[in-house]
Design a protein around this nucleic acid. Structure first.
Lengths: 197, 197
DNA sequence: AGCATTTCTTACCATACATCAATGCACCGG
DNA sequence: CCGGTGCATTGATGTATGGTAAGAAATGCT
């Protein structure tokens, strides 16, 4: 197994697959490189692969009728992205996924996932747990969108992704928060003002 | 097994547990009755049970610092509610859950879930699939909150829960949509105007 | 039935955020 | 070094939604 460090850690620690079990899997991880701005998948495409982000930064987003982008979530190193409609429900995907930075992504195909679930109870359980965690996360975000002002939402974003705020251009953060770049700029201005008092 | 019709259907069809397998489970479903307005769980409580709504209508919501309620989701007949932070992560719950109508709820405890996952592959798979579907649903909602106007969101709500719009008081729908009851009232007025043209 | 309480509607004004447009700044390739 | 391109900032103005308050309608309670 090559030098995919984050992926290795993921398989051992988070997924809970022993080296023994890995050997049983008819699976050689394929990595793909994406330059900044390149797309992994487009809306409408069917794609049953699940992507593990070994290096870089990926985003999943939609484009509305007016051509505006809305970011569903960011996936930095060691995160997983996929379009569930496509990968689990055999429908065409609903989202765009592309690279914010030059990235290296490891492709986990359907066979790998299924086989791993079959042979390892730990993998299954951890996978299940991760999904629950994801749900929790999404619920929190919904709550924030329902209750927070632009400022609160921005502050929460900073708490949640402390290291991302410098890697992601501001207009994307705005798109994640559901406000315009101009508004975010003004929010930031207010915040620096406040912090001087 | 008493007369929990919806629950029975759920177990057989959606969960995929055969009668045989059910017999193996050391489980007698307990049902609980809740009057309109009664709480199933409060924020801060630890509760490892998962609730199946046999009859009635349940809501999961938060209350922010200003005392405003924000509805995370509605659970009518045959839906499942739980607070995942609590049930899967041993933390105190983050949400309130109460009954919108007089309801009958069936309690699936930890033991049941674990045991069922253990003995039935179908149960596991369906459960997993349902979770993915839930994620998909939440993502869609986030997208809607990011991109839609009050009117679009309301129309989407009507599409998603066609039978709920009459059962749920308007101020709760507003709270689900992230707007005030007054705004929803205005939106509805505009819509009836439009439909006359 | 009759009174009280809650929910819905409407009107008027306030505000947060969007939109549009101009400018400044940094990065990049030639 | 220069002009181009994309991003962030700022100001002026617009608009959707919020807040408040009052009355109408619906619902619940005894």
């Amino acid at each position: 197994m090559l030098s995919f460090n984050n992926f290795k850690i993921y398989l051992n620690d988070k997924a809970g697959l022993t080296d023994d079990e890995l050997m049983q899997l008819p699976y050689i991880p394929k990595s793909k490189q994406f330059k900044k701005g390149e797309s992994l998948i487009y809306k409408g495409q069917v794609c049953k692969d699940i992507f593990f982000v070994e290096k870089g930064l990926i985003r999943q987003f939609t484009i509305d009728e007016q051509g505006k982008e809305h970011i569903i979530h960011f996936a930095p190193e060691s995160w997983i992205v996929s379009d569930r409609s496509s990968s689990y429900f055999n429908q065409s995907g609903e989202y765009f996924i592309d690279a914010i930075e030059d990235s290296e992504v490891i492709v986990m195909d359907e066979i790998f996932i299924n086989k791993a679930s079959e042979i390892s109870k730990t993998y299954r359980e951890n996978n299940h747990r991760a999904l629950h965690n994801h749900v929790r996360h999404l619920q929190k975000r919904i709550n924030l969108l329902l209750s927070g002002t632009a400022e609160t939402r921005y502050l929460e974003f900073l708490k949640l992704y402390p290291n991302l705020s410098l890697r992601v251009p501001q207009w994307m953060i705005a798109s994640y928060l559901g406000i315009t770049p101009e508004s975010l700029s003004r929010v930031r201005k207010e915040l620096t003002k406040k912090s001087f008092k």
